[in-house]
Nucleic acid binder design. Structure first.
Lengths: 210, 210
DNA sequence: GTGCGGACTATACGATCGTATAGTATCGAT
DNA sequence: ATCGATACTATACGATCGTATAGTCCGCAC
């Protein structure tokens, strides 16, 4: 047989390419990322990348799918944890706090999905269309549902749900997106535990008035 | 003399290039923007652009300077208006509301500065360094001062000033940045007066607890 | 052991990139 | 009238882009 070993190895190499591509597409955008850089960063030949991803659009789409898959495997866990259990109001508040912390932690550790989103969101085009249809559309719906759940449980203020989603997303994702800027300006990096904790503290204070 | 007319015309052509470049750098990023596209969008020859901006980095920097100059001419007006006048607490609240609305309106009308910032913020590099040193560093300091002023006047909650700045910036700029996404998902464009007004309403509600 | 198919690689090609350089048109000063 | 400077344009060049194609290697069926 082709042996489990060789197949696993092939997948590893392919995944290394996806990982490098995710990093590069997020950092440099679609145009700034080339087959050769991706290959180099993945420790592969350009022809290898080209062989597994027939063209650049395919590479981009598979990379985005890979990134979102990773994210979806990590993030919604917390959400289910929350919605499945019943807690006292006090517990609920610490829980939503923990949810924010988890989102922030994961996003700092895997900022690719945010960066890719921001890269593509800045200009209309086929890639944005695809991204919305495939992933972000669902994100919006689920995010809104989550907000409404929190409001129903009395742990989020009863304001317009979509606005609150945007404001919370903004508060969390903006922090990650401009982290390199913040680091240069303030000399401290927002992905440190203390910075994150304080930021969430502040955010929670603003939300304490359900 | 070279005549005022011809000089004005020359400046017009140069400015048309800057305007086109601002749009393109914001939409496509540094790598995605080329001399030829800029020239084409400005209705000029590539050599004309090349003549006035000796290389791509110079073009980018002058474009950014042009964009920030425009923004700085428009935005801080409101800030001075606020800090110069003394108001009753009620007036102050409607004023901070109006400030948010003005920022949002201007940014929707001239999203280039936000988009360029997000484009460059995603990756460390010489352009980000320059941007921070030249413009964003000041933005942070002034923004923080503004927040602290609002807190001192009792119209903003007394939380960590830099965090609040990030949260407010996030709430406003994130909305603009992902507007193309929101439009596709919800079918309504966030730059409509009603959407903006409601979003600010929601934001103000969260801040009502100084 | 021969042939074949799939996994990978090397090379080639036209387009476009950023940049450098050579050329032209205009105009005031001499 | 001519010269020189300025403003702009046309062309050229090497590098790199995305892609297409040809070639190599190797495990397995027969």
């Amino acid at each position: 047989m082709a042996s489990k070993n060789s197949m696993a190895k092939a997948n590893e190499r392919r995944e290394a390419v996806l990982k490098a591509a995710a990093h590069l597409f997020g950092q440099l955008g679609f145009d700034g990322t080339s087959f050769s850089i991706v290959a180099e960063q993945a420790g592969e030949k350009k022809s290898f990348v080209q062989y597994h991803f027939e063209n650049k659009d395919v590479l981009w789409r598979e990379t985005v799918s890979y990134v979102w898959l990773q994210r979806n495997n990590a993030l919604p866990r917390y959400i289910e944890d929350i919605s499945l259990q019943r807690h006292s109001p006090a517990d609920n508040k610490t829980m939503i706090r923990e949810l924010c912390r988890n989102i922030l932690q994961f996003t700092f550790a895997h900022p690719e999905w945010v960066k890719i989103m921001f890269q593509e969101a800045s200009a209309p085009g086929p890639r944005l269309d695809w991204l919305v249809k495939e992933f972000i559309g669902t994100d919006f719906i689920e995010g809104r549902a989550m907000i409404e759940l929190g409001q129903h449980h009395g742990v989020l203020p009863k304001v317009h749900a979509m606005d609150l989603l945007h404001i919370l997303s903004g508060a969390l994702l903006y922090l990650v997106s401009v982290a390199p800027v913040t680091e240069r300006v303030l000399g401290v990096s927002p992905d440190s535990p203390e910075y994150m904790e304080r930021h969430i503290d502040t955010l929670m204070t603003l939300l304490q008035q359900a």
